[in-house]
């Protein structure tokens, strides 16, 4: 078995593990995109106070924010097949990857909904009035005037949420998904060098997070380029 701790293995493991970064990013991308759709829909239901649905969305957001992602993962993994069996759809043999994407999409959706709601509320109502005054209708003023400004306000929080979600994907292996962490577990089983595997994983996650932070910062500067300095400080 060799030495108990062999630093050179950390470097050796990185290529094997980084090959599975694609799966991790795939989970992230799919769940963020789905989460955006859920989040915008939920935020609109909340903002326009659609009866019944508004209360359901409040319950949904409270539940997602009130339970650990691990519990949500297990609930979707064991619960969704049970629910769908009532309408005679058997998904118990579906790839665990899809359960992970569904869970993270639901979780992101709740967080995004709160972020969007706050951001849309933060846009001055005078903007909507100004849009009406130049003859726009409801949806035009929302999509052309309010939403673009809300996205600018929401962006830093969305970015934080995405990075948090990336770190959360490291729990997907608990229901048997072969992402970076899952591959790490099999490497440990094969080589018994747990510490080195986790160190390589930490290096990869850290590097990916740093790259994401850099990209987000560049994009943030871009969407704020029309803002005068004092506004972007307070906004």
């Amino acid at each position: 078995m060799g030495k108990a701790f062999d630093p050179s293995l950390i470097v050796d493991f990185i290529p094997t593990l980084i090959y599975y970064l694609g799966v991790t990013l795939q989970i992230l991308a799919a769940s963020v995109l789905l989460g955006m759709v859920i989040g915008i829909a939920a935020a609109i239901l909340r903002l326009f106070r659609i009866p019944v649905l508004n209360q359901l969305v409040i319950l949904y957001i409270s539940f997602i924010r009130g339970t650990p992602i691990l519990i949500q993962l297990f609930l979707v993994f064991y619960g969704l097949p049970a629910i769908l069996l009532f309408i005679n759809i058997d998904i118990s043999r579906m790839d665990a990857l899809y359960f992970v994407i569904i869970t993270y999409a639901l979780s992101n959706g709740a967080h995004f909904a709160e972020i969007f709601r706050g951001a849309i509320k933060a846009v001055d109502y005078g903007q909507t009035e100004a849009a009406y005054s130049v003859g726009m209708n409801n949806s035009q003023s929302f999509f052309r005037i309010v939403l673009p400004q809300a996205i600018r306000i929401a962006f830093p929080n969305i970015a934080n949420s995405i990075i948090g979600s990336l770190k959360d994907t490291s729990l997907a292996f608990t229901i048997g998904v072969m992402d970076m962490m899952g591959r790490g577990e099999t490497l440990i089983a094969a080589t018994a060098h747990a510490l080195e595997v986790y160190l390589s994983l930490a290096v990869i996650y850290y590097a990916v997070v740093l790259v994401f932070e850099k990209i987000f910062r560049l994009y943030e500067n871009r969407i704020n380029r029309h803002q005068t300095v004092d506004v972007s400080v307070t906004g």
């Binding site: 701790f5 747990a194 986790y198 994983l201 996650y205 850290y206």
Partner: peptide, 21 residues
Amino acid sequence: SFFRGTPIIMHIMLIYFGFPL
């Protein structure tokens, strides 16, 4: 930067396997 940039499960695993050694 490191602790906010890596998943918390990594910290648990690194210390769980690293400290005993």
